[in-house]
């Protein structure tokens, strides 16, 4: 059997073999978090930064005990930030938390009903973070013009939403995602909206470099099984993209030859 090869998936100068990035939210407990993420094969794992719960048991387990910075490339995110200033503060706290690690997922949200990206604040935050030496993977709308601006500023990955965060509605505007893929020289990842394996495969078939998801695994009935499904879907979608799909036809085209039929 031929060994199939692919170009490396490179983020901010580092090569990765998995094109699936996963979040750590909404799991039942840390055991399930660790098991699902291991099953997914993801190498880049995102987490949130929050106030320490003071007065807690000092021996309580910590997320970073389960998702070790030695094993995974950690991607702190700015989820929950609604303006550039909070997002920048959060990234600086994360960098301190991870001993100088510069890679962040920037997301600045517009409101708590849609969690839609506020692109004005996102652009402001990106400018400050890039000037401060961060490698910025940016969550944004599926607007190709905004995506182009973010890339021109120096963001290391463009991450348009498929649909609203946590909605599981899949990729609502595949044409826009395709436009962003075609124009971008940095990796493009669908981030948000993936509901099931076919959505992840679709993102990859559109030519995305990767997929970032959380709820689709964490809220599946069986998160471990869905983690495996997502891993396979991303691989299958990537191969389908590289293979190049057959052209669509208006009429049928038999797979078996006409010649030599017994009724000929």
């Amino acid at each position: 059997m031929t060994q199939l090869t692919d170009t490396p998936f490179t983020i901010a100068g580092r090569d990765f073999s998995s094109r699936l990035l996963v979040g750590t939210g909404k799991y039942k407990d840390f055991t399930e978090t660790g098991a699902a993420i291991a099953q997914s094969g993801a190498e880049i794992v995102t987490f949130a930064v929050r106030r320490t719960n003071l007065g807690q048991d000092a021996d309580a387990p910590n997320l970073l005990d389960v998702i070790s910075p030695k094993q995974y490339t950690l991607l702190p995110n700015t989820a929950g930030c609604y303006n550039a200033k909070d997002a920048v503060r959060t990234c600086r706290l994360a960098r301190e938390l991870l001993d100088g690690h510069n890679l962040v997922k920037l997301e600045v949200l517009g409101d708590d009903h849609t969690l839609y990206p506020n692109v004005v604040e996102t652009l402001k935050a990106a400018e400050t973070l890039l000037a401060d030496g961060f490698d910025v993977m940016v969550y944004t709308s599926d607007d190709p013009i905004v995506a182009r601006e973010l890339e021109a500023m120096g963001c290391c990955a463009i991450m348009p939403l498929g649909s609203l965060i946590g909605s599981g509605h899949g990729i609502q505007n595949p044409h826009n995602v395709r436009l962003i893929v075609e124009q971008s020289r940095v990796p493009v990842l669908v981030d948000a909206g993936i509901g099931t394996a076919s959505d992840a495969a679709m993102a990859m078939e559109l030519g995305c470099d990767g997929v970032l998801l959380n709820t689709a695994i964490a809220h599946a009935r069986d998160p471990l099984r869905m983690a495996n499904a997502m891993k396979l879907a991303v691989e299958a979608g990537r191969d389908a993209f590289l293979a190049g799909r057959m052209p669509r036809r208006q009429s049928a085209d038999p797979s078996s030859p006409f010649a030599g039929r017994i009724n000929g």
Binding site: K26, Y27, F47, R51, L63, L74, A79, A218
Partner: peptide, 30 residues
């Protein structure tokens, strides 16, 4: 007061009345 205090500087950073302090850690999120 909205400035990061690196771990190495904590012992050299006196606290004053009115200081606004944030102590954060990593939690699950997407």
């Amino acid at each position: 007061n909205e400035q990061i205090v690196p771990k190495s500087q904590l012992a050299a950073t006196p606290l004053a009345s009115g200081d606004q302090i944030e102590v954060v850690h990593a939690i699950g999120g997407g």
